[in-house]
Protein backbone atom coordinates (compact mmCIF):
# COMPACT_ATOMS: atom_id res chain seq x y z
CA UNK A 1 0.00 0.00 0.00
CA UNK A 2 1.54 3.34 -0.96
CA UNK A 3 1.44 6.35 1.33
CA UNK A 4 -1.25 8.03 -0.72
CA UNK A 5 -3.76 5.21 -0.27
CA UNK A 6 -2.91 5.15 3.41
CA UNK A 7 -3.45 8.90 3.76
CA UNK A 8 -6.77 8.50 1.99
CA UNK A 9 -7.83 5.72 4.32
CA UNK A 10 -6.95 7.83 7.34
CA UNK A 11 -8.95 10.68 5.87
CA UNK A 12 -12.01 8.53 5.25
CA UNK A 13 -11.61 6.63 8.50
CA UNK A 14 -11.46 9.80 10.61
CA UNK A 15 -15.22 10.23 10.88
CA UNK A 16 -15.63 6.60 12.01
CA UNK A 17 -12.91 7.07 14.61
CA UNK A 18 -14.83 10.11 15.82
CA UNK A 19 -17.97 7.97 16.11
CA UNK A 20 -16.09 5.45 18.22
CA UNK A 21 -14.86 8.25 20.50
CA UNK A 22 -18.42 9.50 20.88
CA UNK A 23 -19.69 6.02 21.75
CA UNK A 24 -17.04 5.54 24.41
CA UNK A 25 -17.52 9.02 25.84
CA UNK A 26 -21.29 8.79 26.12
CA UNK A 27 -21.18 5.26 27.52
CA UNK A 28 -18.77 6.30 30.25
CA UNK A 29 -20.37 9.70 30.92
CA UNK A 30 -23.79 8.05 30.87
CA UNK A 31 -22.80 5.84 33.76
CA UNK A 32 -22.37 8.89 35.98
CA UNK A 33 -24.78 11.47 34.56
CA UNK A 34 -27.69 9.66 33.01
CA UNK A 35 -31.00 9.46 34.83
CA UNK A 36 -31.98 6.41 32.82
CA UNK A 37 -31.13 2.91 33.91
CA UNK A 38 -30.32 1.78 30.39
CA UNK A 39 -26.79 1.80 29.02
CA UNK A 40 -26.21 4.20 26.13
CA UNK A 41 -24.98 1.47 23.85
CA UNK A 42 -28.13 -0.56 24.39
CA UNK A 43 -28.90 -2.45 21.16
CA UNK A 44 -32.43 -1.12 20.78
CA UNK A 45 -31.17 2.36 21.39
CA UNK A 46 -28.67 1.99 18.55
CA UNK A 47 -31.34 0.65 16.20
CA UNK A 48 -33.48 3.63 17.05
CA UNK A 49 -30.55 5.91 16.37
CA UNK A 50 -30.23 4.55 12.84
CA UNK A 51 -33.93 5.01 12.27
CA UNK A 52 -33.79 8.58 13.51
CA UNK A 53 -30.80 9.26 11.24
CA UNK A 54 -32.81 8.35 8.17
CA UNK A 55 -34.69 11.58 7.32
CA UNK A 56 -31.66 13.89 7.42
CA UNK A 57 -29.41 11.07 6.26
CA UNK A 58 -31.24 10.44 3.00
CA UNK A 59 -31.10 14.16 2.20
CA UNK A 60 -27.43 14.43 3.21
CA UNK A 61 -26.49 11.58 0.88
CA UNK A 62 -28.09 13.44 -2.00
CA UNK A 63 -26.38 16.64 -0.87
CA UNK A 64 -23.04 14.85 -1.20
CA UNK A 65 -23.48 14.48 -4.95
CA UNK A 66 -24.61 18.09 -5.26
CA UNK A 67 -21.58 19.28 -3.29
CA UNK A 68 -19.11 17.03 -5.09
CA UNK A 69 -20.48 18.70 -8.20
CA UNK A 70 -19.48 22.04 -6.70
CA UNK A 71 -23.08 23.15 -6.08
CA UNK A 72 -25.27 23.36 -3.01
CA UNK A 73 -29.01 22.95 -2.47
CA UNK A 74 -30.61 25.05 0.26
CA UNK A 75 -34.17 24.23 -0.76
CA UNK A 76 -34.27 20.62 0.43
CA UNK A 77 -36.08 21.45 3.69
CA UNK A 78 -38.91 23.17 1.86
CA UNK A 79 -39.04 20.41 -0.75
CA UNK A 80 -39.28 17.94 2.12
CA UNK A 81 -42.26 19.79 3.63
CA UNK A 82 -44.12 20.24 0.35
CA UNK A 83 -43.66 16.59 -0.61
CA UNK A 84 -44.95 15.59 2.83
CA UNK A 85 -48.10 17.67 2.34
CA UNK A 86 -48.69 16.16 -1.09
CA UNK A 87 -48.21 12.68 0.39
CA UNK A 88 -50.71 13.09 3.22
CA UNK A 89 -53.24 15.25 1.42
CA UNK A 90 -53.41 13.24 -1.80
CA UNK A 91 -54.46 10.17 0.14
CA UNK A 92 -57.65 11.99 1.16
CA UNK A 93 -58.58 13.19 -2.35
CA UNK A 94 -62.03 11.92 -3.36
CA UNK A 95 -60.89 10.74 -6.81
CA UNK A 96 -58.68 8.13 -5.19
CA UNK A 97 -61.43 7.07 -2.71
CA UNK A 98 -62.16 3.80 -4.55
CA UNK A 99 -58.58 2.58 -4.38
CA UNK A 100 -58.56 1.41 -0.77
CA UNK A 101 -55.01 0.98 0.47
CA UNK A 102 -53.82 1.28 -3.13
CA UNK A 103 -53.97 5.01 -2.45
CA UNK A 104 -50.69 4.62 -0.57
CA UNK A 105 -48.83 4.01 -3.81
CA UNK A 106 -50.56 6.95 -5.44
CA UNK A 107 -49.59 9.16 -2.50
CA UNK A 108 -46.00 8.00 -2.60
CA UNK A 109 -45.76 8.44 -6.35
CA UNK A 110 -47.22 11.95 -6.22
CA UNK A 111 -44.94 12.97 -3.34
CA UNK A 112 -41.83 11.66 -5.06
CA UNK A 113 -42.88 13.34 -8.29
CA UNK A 114 -43.26 16.61 -6.42
CA UNK A 115 -39.70 16.31 -5.20
CA UNK A 116 -38.38 15.53 -8.66
CA UNK A 117 -40.25 18.47 -10.20
CA UNK A 118 -39.04 20.93 -7.56
CA UNK A 119 -35.49 19.62 -8.03
CA UNK A 120 -35.86 19.99 -11.78
CA UNK A 121 -36.91 23.62 -11.30
CA UNK A 122 -33.69 24.28 -9.38
CA UNK A 123 -31.56 22.37 -11.82
CA UNK A 124 -33.10 23.98 -14.85
CA UNK A 125 -32.57 27.49 -13.50
CA UNK A 126 -28.96 26.74 -12.55
CA UNK A 127 -28.35 25.26 -16.01
CA UNK A 128 -30.04 27.89 -18.14
CA UNK A 129 -29.22 31.06 -16.23
CA UNK A 130 -25.76 30.14 -14.99
CA UNK A 131 -26.64 31.76 -11.66
CA UNK A 132 -24.80 30.22 -8.72
CA UNK A 133 -26.67 27.30 -7.16
CA UNK A 134 -26.40 28.93 -3.73
CA UNK A 135 -28.44 31.92 -4.93
CA UNK A 136 -30.90 29.89 -6.99
CA UNK A 137 -31.72 27.49 -4.17
CA UNK A 138 -31.79 30.31 -1.60
CA UNK A 139 -34.56 31.76 -3.73
CA UNK A 140 -36.34 28.47 -4.21
CA UNK A 141 -36.03 27.70 -0.50
CA UNK A 142 -38.15 30.79 0.18
CA UNK A 143 -40.42 30.12 -2.79
CA UNK A 144 -41.10 26.46 -2.02
CA UNK A 145 -41.76 27.32 1.63
CA UNK A 146 -44.23 29.91 0.37
CA UNK A 147 -46.04 27.15 -1.53
CA UNK A 148 -46.18 25.11 1.67
CA UNK A 149 -47.97 27.94 3.48
CA UNK A 150 -50.26 28.63 0.53
CA UNK A 151 -51.44 25.04 0.70
CA UNK A 152 -52.96 25.04 4.14
CA UNK A 153 -52.08 28.32 5.81
CA UNK A 154 -50.64 27.92 9.27
CA UNK A 155 -52.66 24.72 9.76
CA UNK A 156 -51.02 21.32 9.95
CA UNK A 157 -51.98 18.83 7.25
CA UNK A 158 -52.87 15.47 8.75
CA UNK A 159 -53.92 12.06 7.57
CA UNK A 160 -53.28 8.72 9.20
CA UNK A 161 -53.46 5.56 7.13
CA UNK A 162 -52.99 2.69 9.54
CA UNK A 163 -51.73 0.24 6.93
CA UNK A 164 -49.05 2.76 6.10
CA UNK A 165 -48.21 3.38 9.73
CA UNK A 166 -47.84 -0.36 10.29
CA UNK A 167 -45.49 -0.59 7.33
CA UNK A 168 -43.45 2.37 8.52
CA UNK A 169 -43.14 1.06 12.04
CA UNK A 170 -42.27 -2.47 10.98
CA UNK A 171 -38.91 -4.03 11.69
CA UNK A 172 -37.37 -6.43 9.22
CA UNK A 173 -34.33 -8.40 10.37
CA UNK A 174 -34.27 -6.06 13.35
CA UNK A 175 -33.93 -2.88 11.30
CA UNK A 176 -36.75 -0.36 10.98
CA UNK A 177 -38.29 0.45 7.63
CA UNK A 178 -36.66 3.87 7.64
CA UNK A 179 -33.25 2.31 8.22
CA UNK A 180 -33.76 0.02 5.24
CA UNK A 181 -34.52 3.00 3.07
CA UNK A 182 -31.40 4.75 4.32
CA UNK A 183 -29.32 1.66 3.60
CA UNK A 184 -30.79 1.31 0.11
CA UNK A 185 -29.99 4.93 -0.70
CA UNK A 186 -26.42 4.47 0.53
CA UNK A 187 -25.92 1.44 -1.71
CA UNK A 188 -27.48 3.00 -4.80
CA UNK A 189 -25.66 6.32 -4.44
CA UNK A 190 -22.35 4.65 -3.69
CA UNK A 191 -22.78 2.72 -6.92
CA UNK A 192 -23.68 5.86 -8.84
CA UNK A 193 -20.73 7.86 -7.52
CA UNK A 194 -18.08 5.19 -7.90
CA UNK A 195 -19.16 2.99 -10.75
CA UNK A 196 -21.05 5.09 -13.25
CA UNK A 197 -19.87 7.60 -15.82
CA UNK A 198 -22.38 10.09 -14.41
CA UNK A 199 -20.85 9.83 -10.94
CA UNK A 200 -17.25 10.09 -12.13
CA UNK A 201 -18.17 13.11 -14.23
CA UNK A 202 -19.63 14.70 -11.08
CA UNK A 203 -16.16 14.57 -9.52
CA UNK A 204 -14.55 15.90 -12.68
CA UNK A 205 -16.95 18.85 -12.90
CA UNK A 206 -16.54 19.74 -9.24
CA UNK A 207 -12.78 19.42 -9.43
CA UNK A 208 -12.12 21.43 -12.56
CA UNK A 209 -15.19 22.68 -14.30
CA UNK A 210 -13.32 24.24 -17.18
CA UNK A 211 -11.51 20.99 -17.90
CA UNK A 212 -14.81 19.14 -17.86
CA UNK A 213 -16.37 21.60 -20.29
CA UNK A 214 -13.32 21.39 -22.55
CA UNK A 215 -13.59 17.64 -22.50
CA UNK A 216 -17.13 17.91 -23.80
CA UNK A 217 -18.97 16.94 -20.63
CA UNK A 218 -22.38 18.60 -20.77
CA UNK A 219 -22.32 20.31 -17.41
CA UNK A 220 -25.83 21.80 -17.49
CA UNK A 221 -27.83 18.61 -18.06
CA UNK A 222 -25.57 16.91 -15.57
CA UNK A 223 -26.52 19.48 -12.91
CA UNK A 224 -30.20 19.08 -13.82
CA UNK A 225 -30.07 15.33 -13.22
CA UNK A 226 -28.40 15.78 -9.85
CA UNK A 227 -30.88 18.40 -8.68
CA UNK A 228 -33.72 16.09 -9.72
CA UNK A 229 -31.99 13.35 -7.77
CA UNK A 230 -31.73 15.39 -4.59
CA UNK A 231 -35.34 16.55 -5.02
CA UNK A 232 -36.35 12.91 -5.26
CA UNK A 233 -34.36 12.08 -2.15
CA UNK A 234 -35.81 14.99 -0.15
CA UNK A 235 -39.25 13.67 -1.09
CA UNK A 236 -38.24 10.12 -0.25
CA UNK A 237 -37.11 11.35 3.13
CA UNK A 238 -40.54 12.94 3.64
CA UNK A 239 -42.27 9.74 2.51
CA UNK A 240 -40.28 7.69 5.00
CA UNK A 241 -40.89 10.07 7.89
CA UNK A 242 -44.54 11.06 7.37
CA UNK A 243 -45.77 7.61 6.53
CA UNK A 244 -45.33 7.06 10.22
CA UNK A 245 -46.16 10.43 11.79
CA UNK A 246 -49.19 11.31 9.65
CA UNK A 247 -49.13 15.07 10.34
CA UNK A 248 -47.04 17.82 8.80
CA UNK A 249 -46.65 21.37 10.09
CA UNK A 250 -45.88 24.09 7.57
CA UNK A 251 -42.60 24.75 9.39
CA UNK A 252 -41.41 21.14 9.20
CA UNK A 253 -38.09 20.54 7.51
CA UNK A 254 -36.73 23.96 8.37
CA UNK A 255 -32.95 23.96 8.81
CA UNK A 256 -32.82 20.45 7.34
CA UNK A 257 -30.62 21.84 4.57
CA UNK A 258 -28.13 23.05 7.17
CA UNK A 259 -28.12 19.78 9.08
CA UNK A 260 -27.59 17.91 5.85
CA UNK A 261 -24.72 20.19 4.84
CA UNK A 262 -23.21 19.83 8.31
CA UNK A 263 -23.24 16.05 8.01
CA UNK A 264 -21.71 16.18 4.52
CA UNK A 265 -18.95 18.54 5.63
CA UNK A 266 -18.23 16.46 8.74
CA UNK A 267 -17.85 13.53 6.39
CA UNK A 268 -15.01 15.34 4.67
CA UNK A 269 -16.61 16.49 1.42
CA UNK A 270 -14.97 19.66 0.11
CA UNK A 271 -17.17 22.74 -0.04
CA UNK A 272 -15.45 23.67 -3.28
CA UNK A 273 -16.39 20.35 -4.86
CA UNK A 274 -14.47 17.55 -6.49
CA UNK A 275 -13.87 15.48 -3.38
CA UNK A 276 -16.24 13.57 -1.15
CA UNK A 277 -17.62 10.15 -0.38
CA UNK A 278 -21.06 8.70 0.25
CA UNK A 279 -19.83 6.39 3.00
CA UNK A 280 -18.17 9.26 4.88
CA UNK A 281 -21.37 11.29 4.66
CA UNK A 282 -23.20 8.37 6.27
CA UNK A 283 -20.57 8.60 9.01
CA UNK A 284 -21.25 12.32 9.36
CA UNK A 285 -24.99 11.70 9.68
CA UNK A 286 -24.52 9.05 12.36
CA UNK A 287 -21.99 11.18 14.23
CA UNK A 288 -24.45 14.06 14.49
CA UNK A 289 -27.32 11.84 15.55
CA UNK A 290 -25.05 10.22 18.16
CA UNK A 291 -24.16 13.64 19.54
CA UNK A 292 -27.79 14.65 19.82
CA UNK A 293 -28.83 11.42 21.42
CA UNK A 294 -25.77 11.17 23.64
CA UNK A 295 -26.07 14.71 24.95
CA UNK A 296 -29.75 14.07 25.60
CA UNK A 297 -28.76 10.88 27.39
CA UNK A 298 -26.51 12.73 29.81
CA UNK A 299 -29.18 15.34 30.45
CA UNK A 300 -28.30 18.28 28.20
CA UNK A 301 -31.14 20.34 26.74
CA UNK A 302 -31.66 21.10 23.03
CA UNK A 303 -30.00 24.52 23.12
CA UNK A 304 -26.84 23.03 24.59
CA UNK A 305 -26.91 20.27 21.99
CA UNK A 306 -26.87 22.78 19.13
CA UNK A 307 -24.11 24.79 20.74
CA UNK A 308 -21.96 21.70 21.17
CA UNK A 309 -22.57 20.42 17.64
CA UNK A 310 -21.63 23.84 16.26
CA UNK A 311 -18.41 23.93 18.24
CA UNK A 312 -17.50 20.39 17.27
CA UNK A 313 -18.08 21.10 13.58
CA UNK A 314 -15.62 24.00 13.68
CA UNK A 315 -13.15 22.04 15.79
CA UNK A 316 -13.24 19.04 13.43
CA UNK A 317 -12.67 21.17 10.33
CA UNK A 318 -9.85 23.02 12.07
CA UNK A 319 -8.25 19.71 12.98
CA UNK A 320 -8.65 18.52 9.39
CA UNK A 321 -6.90 21.66 8.18
CA UNK A 322 -4.05 21.24 10.64
CA UNK A 323 -3.56 17.59 9.70
CA UNK A 324 -3.47 18.41 6.02
CA UNK A 325 -1.17 21.41 6.35
CA UNK A 326 2.43 20.80 5.41
CA UNK A 327 3.96 22.48 8.44
CA UNK A 328 6.76 24.94 7.84
CA UNK A 329 6.78 24.36 4.12
CA UNK A 330 3.40 25.97 3.85
CA UNK A 331 3.08 29.72 3.45
CA UNK A 332 1.62 31.69 6.31
CA UNK A 333 -1.69 33.38 5.66
Amino acid sequence: MNSETRANLIKQGAIWAFIVVELIFFSVAGEFLSLSEKAFMDFDNMLLLLKQSAPIGIIALGMTIIMVNGNIDLSVGATFALSAIVLLDSMTWPIFAGLGDGVIFVGWALALMTGVILGAVNGFIVWKTGVDAFIVTLGSMLGFRGLVFMYNGEQPTSHLNWTLVDFAEAQFLGLHTATWFLAAVVVVLWFVMNKTVHGRNAYAIGNNREAAVNAGIRVGPHFLINFMLIGFLAALSAVVFYSESGSVNPNDGMLYELWAITAVVLGGTKLTGGYGSIISTLGGVIAIQLLRKGLGHIGADTETVNLVIGLILIAVLFLDRQLNAKGKEELKT
Binding site: T196, A204, N207, N208, A215, G274
Partner: peptide, 26 residues
Protein backbone atom coordinates in the same frame (compact mmCIF):
# COMPACT_ATOMS: atom_id res chain seq x y z
CA UNK B 1 -3.20 22.59 -17.20
CA UNK B 2 -6.83 21.63 -17.30
CA UNK B 3 -6.87 18.50 -15.21
CA UNK B 4 -8.98 17.30 -12.32
CA UNK B 5 -6.56 16.71 -9.44
CA UNK B 6 -8.72 14.29 -7.49
CA UNK B 7 -9.26 11.90 -10.39
CA UNK B 8 -6.93 9.22 -11.68
CA UNK B 9 -4.65 9.60 -14.67
CA UNK B 10 -6.90 7.32 -16.71
CA UNK B 11 -10.05 9.25 -15.90
CA UNK B 12 -8.37 12.51 -16.83
CA UNK B 13 -7.09 11.20 -20.14
CA UNK B 14 -10.55 9.96 -21.10
CA UNK B 15 -12.41 12.84 -19.44
CA UNK B 16 -15.78 13.22 -21.11
CA UNK B 17 -15.27 9.99 -23.02
CA UNK B 18 -15.11 7.32 -20.32
CA UNK B 19 -15.81 3.90 -21.86
CA UNK B 20 -19.23 2.63 -20.76
CA UNK B 21 -20.90 -0.65 -19.99
CA UNK B 22 -24.63 -1.20 -19.47
CA UNK B 23 -26.50 1.05 -16.99
CA UNK B 24 -24.03 3.87 -17.55
CA UNK B 25 -21.34 1.99 -15.66
CA UNK B 26 -17.69 2.84 -16.29
Amino acid sequence: LSLADELSVAENIFLGELPRKSFGRV
